[in-house]
Computed example of a mutant assay.
Amino acid sequence: MTKIALYDLDRTITKRPTYMSFLLHAAWRHERWRLAFLPGLLFLFAGYLVRALDRGGLKERMHDMLLGSPVDAEKMAAIAESFAEATLRDNVHPQALARIANEKATGHRLVLATASYAFYVEPLARRLGFDDLIGTLVRRDADGAILAEIDGENCYGDAKMRRIEAWAEEQGLERADAAVRFYSDSQTDLPVFDWSDEPVATNPTNTLRRIAEKRGWPVIAWG
């Protein structure tokens, strides 16, 4: 039996969401003049609120506004490394670090499944000790430079569940032969909670807390 500890990232392992923090961190180190576009984010958020943009479209346009497109992959990799260091310093729950280390020591395969872009989460996942990363992918140009376009689906909600199932198939993992523990803060991950053997509502939203209490799931709050 393969023991899998499957984690969401934002507000589960981290205290705060990572995407906006990453964009600011990266823009300052890449082309800081783009920070002048920050007020324009209000128009993007307004478009999202009136459903002119979905979450994926909002993510792409924020990326394009604050980082541009394309962005050299090596430069962005160095920025992602520095962002991982900054995140570990002040945006990770110590209790999450302890739980992850314990599961690693007890033979769990650690898998991070997040809607965040994999290109900036990878250094953080590596530092945290994860064995596998499932995240939102970006398109790249012929030179490998990063474009402000999602490759495939935004790894969120039902799409995250599809990505996890695809990952398991690629790894040759039979669901019946795996014991899956899943940590997340959000009810948007209900498909994954239902798929797991041991759902753990972690720093839950009020909605998720009510669901967890009704279904008898463990509820933990870090920080």
Rank of each mutant, 00 (worst) to 15 (best):
Y117K: 00
V200H: 02
M62I: 02
E170S: 15
G135F: 03
L53N: 10
D54W: 08
V219L: 10
A115P: 05
R55K: 14
A36R: 11
K214C: 06
D10K: 06
L137M: 12
G40C: 07
N91P: 06
R162Y: 12
D54T: 09
E60R: 06
V192A: 00
E103R: 15
P70C: 08
W217E: 12
K75G: 08
L137F: 05
A178H: 01
D141W: 05
A27P: 03
N91G: 07
K214Q: 14
R127Q: 12
A101E: 15
W195T: 05
R210N: 11
F45S: 08
E213A: 11
Y19T: 05
I100R: 11
W222F: 13
E60F: 09
I13W: 01
A166D: 13
S196N: 03
E198A: 12
V121S: 07
Y117W: 07
A5N: 07
I4L: 13
H63V: 13
T205D: 03
L35S: 01
A201E: 00
R181M: 07
F182G: 00
L66A: 04
W28I: 03
A178P: 00
Y117V: 02
E122Q: 15
D10V: 06
R32V: 05
L124R: 04
K214L: 13
A73G: 09
V219T: 11
E81I: 07
G135M: 08
A105I: 09
K75P: 00
E103C: 14
L58M: 13
I79Q: 06
I164L: 14
N203H: 01
R209A: 09
W33C: 03
D90R: 00
V121M: 10
D194W: 11
A78W: 06
D158Q: 15
A105E: 15
A212P: 00
R16I: 08
I211A: 07
A27Y: 02
L128W: 00
L44H: 11
V50K: 12
A221K: 11
H63F: 15
G172D: 10
P191H: 05
L23C: 04
K3P: 08
R162Q: 12
S69T: 14
T87Q: 05
G56F: 03
R181W: 04
I146F: 15
A27S: 12
K160H: 10
A115N: 07
V200Y: 01
